[in-house]
Design a protein around this nucleic acid. Structure first.
Lengths: 166, 166
DNA sequence: TATTGTTATACTCTATAACTATA
DNA sequence: TATAGTTATAGAGTATAACAATA
């Protein structure tokens, strides 16, 4: 996710064809929250990925690392549910992080099927830097908003991201 | 995108493990707008896709169809830029829609390289139904918000989705 | 019987480069 | 030279089913 996204964004916002003049902005599609959110996410994810690239992380692996840094190390099943990923994807991501010594799998004594994923010291250290990189990418994506507006947006998104099925 | 998403959402929000009790909600990750938006979009896209399935559309093809319904039929390049997709992807999507007689490629007389994508009568008819389906999916995803809050959210997202690079 | 993690596999999505025809 | 569309291909991401170990 390096080139094309950024490229199309560049093209899209080329000064010679300002967004505000684009007739497509009059489309019904632009009134759909789903579309706007998807576009914002795809731009934001591309930025975050490119900021994370020097650390050899992507948003996916970064997210797993972040959750592995919490006090109560989550099981792989919990990671899958929380990140809306299939369990087999978690296996691959955790494998990669574990091979780099960033997280470790800890057998659960009560349920020996389950394995808790916990960040190592080195994983926590990397997470600190990664977190900073992601915040930086986010700040650049949210440049158009005031701090208060960011708080509003966070509150609204949090509610729809964690609301039981309609 | 049929099973796993819905399934993990079901698991995630199973009454026996309410979201509000999940220790992962205390993670720093949950304070990131990027993460919240990505989660909301992935849930919302799954819903929209399943609502569109009976019409043999997905959010991608639906979006192209929607833009093809605008007064000034966009070129494939404009579609690619607007939807943050690579031109070759647009080709595939337009091919599929064209084969179903939903859109047509119209050569531009001024620039014979360019082709405008315009919805046919049948395409416009399908779009009406598809649009209703998507609105329904959206309403279900946004159930937790009031109408005013939806307007707020739309306004904020629109600004970050269409802001020149930071 | 059901669930956790795992493997293997297939499928979809996305990206890249090379080509053509126009400009 | 540069751009619009196209093709072919490769790579990443995602989904499915089946299995072993455990509950």
């Amino acid at each position: 996710m390096t080139g094309t996204f950024a490229d199309s964004i560049e093209n899209r916002f080329d000064p010679s064809t300002p967004a505000s003049a684009d007739p497509l902005l009059a489309s019904e599609l632009v009134t759909e929250i789903e579309f706007l959110a998807a576009r914002a996410v795809s731009i934001g994810t591309a930025r975050a990925n490119s900021m994370l690239a020097p650390l050899d992380l992507k948003v996916r692996s970064y997210s797993v690392l972040a959750l592995a840094c919490t006090a109560e190390a989550p099981s792989q099943r919990e990671l899958a549910d929380f990140l809306c990923l299939v369990p087999s994807q978690i296996v691959a991501i955790v494998d990669a992080l574990e091979q780099r010594g960033l997280v470790e799998r800890i057998g659960d004594r009560n349920d020996r099927r389950s394995k808790a994923i916990r960040a190592t010291a080195s994983g926590k250290k990397l997470y600190k830097n990664a977190s900073r990189a992601v915040r930086e990418a986010e700040a650049s994506s949210l440049e158009a908003l005031t701090v208060d507006e960011c708080d509003q947006l966070r509150g609204l998104l949090r509610r729809i991201a964690f609301t039981p099925a309609g």
